[in-house]
Simulated assay, not measured.
Amino acid sequence: MPRLVLFGVILVAAVIIYAVIDCIMSRANEVRSISKVSWVLAIILVPVIGAALWFLFGRPSGGSGGSGPRQPRRPSAPDDDPDFLRNLEIRRRQEQKEAELKAREAELRAREEQQDRRSDDGKPGA
């Protein structure tokens, strides 16, 4: 029985320590309900209830609490992504330039053929 009590005390202490560290590592503007300092005091002064309340009502919605590096939010749709839109615009311009280049090449070939026909027509007796 004493071992079970000791295990329970260690478990409760670990949860409280984790709650305090999680609260301290959280960004102040993401903490819900009350201020960050108030949460730390609540967790320390009313250990079990304070830690439980922190996990239920105070912890940031993301669930990570601020531990570890945060990844920037990626747009949910391609038309919200500025990189995608920029690449789309670049691709559109390149395709437009290629189409203009092909049209110019076709025009030059047509002129060259026309000049060849004129020069062939002007040559005597072939």
Rank of each mutant, 00 (worst) to 15 (best):
S61V: 11
S61W: 11
S61E: 02
S61G: 05
G62V: 03
G62R: 08
G62Y: 02
G62S: 15
G63Q: 05
G63T: 09
G63H: 06
G63R: 01
S64G: 10
S64I: 04
S64A: 13
S64D: 15
G65T: 07
G65M: 14
G66R: 12
G66N: 09
G66Q: 12
S67Q: 03
S67M: 10
G68R: 03
G68E: 01
G68K: 05
P69N: 07
P69S: 07
P69E: 09
P69R: 14
P69C: 05
R70Y: 12
R70K: 13
Q71L: 12
Q71I: 11
Q71C: 07
P72V: 14
P72L: 15
P72Q: 05
R73Q: 11
R73K: 07
R73M: 13
R73G: 07
R73S: 13
R73I: 05
R74H: 07
R74F: 02
R74E: 11
R74I: 02
R74P: 01
P75A: 11
P75D: 08
P75N: 03
P75I: 03
S76E: 14
S76Y: 10
S76Q: 10
A77S: 05
A77K: 12
P78A: 00
P78G: 03
P78S: 09
D79N: 08
D79I: 07
D79H: 14
D79Y: 07
D80S: 11
D80E: 15
D81C: 05
D81S: 03
D81M: 00
D81G: 01
D81N: 13
D81A: 04
D81L: 00
D81P: 00
D81R: 06
P82A: 02
P82K: 03
D83Q: 09
D83N: 12
D83S: 06
F84C: 03
L85A: 04
L85N: 11
L85W: 03
L85V: 03
R86L: 04
R86T: 09
R86V: 02
N87G: 15
N87R: 15
N87V: 02
N87A: 08
N87E: 15
L88F: 01
L88R: 14
L88A: 11
L88S: 08
L88V: 02
E89A: 10
E89H: 00
E89G: 01
E89F: 01
E89D: 12
I90F: 02
R91D: 11
R91P: 00
R92W: 00
R92G: 03
R92H: 06
R92V: 02
R92Q: 09
R93W: 08
R93I: 11
R93M: 06
R93E: 15
R93N: 13
Q94Y: 06
Q94N: 05
E95F: 08
Q96Y: 09
Q96D: 15
Q96I: 12
K97D: 15
K97N: 14
E98K: 15
E98Q: 15
A99W: 01
A99Q: 12
A99P: 00
A99Y: 04
A99R: 13
E100H: 06
E100R: 10
L101K: 12
L101H: 07
L101C: 00
K102M: 13
K102E: 14
K102P: 00
K102R: 13
K102S: 07
K102C: 00
K102D: 04
K102Q: 14
A103W: 02
A103P: 02
A103D: 04
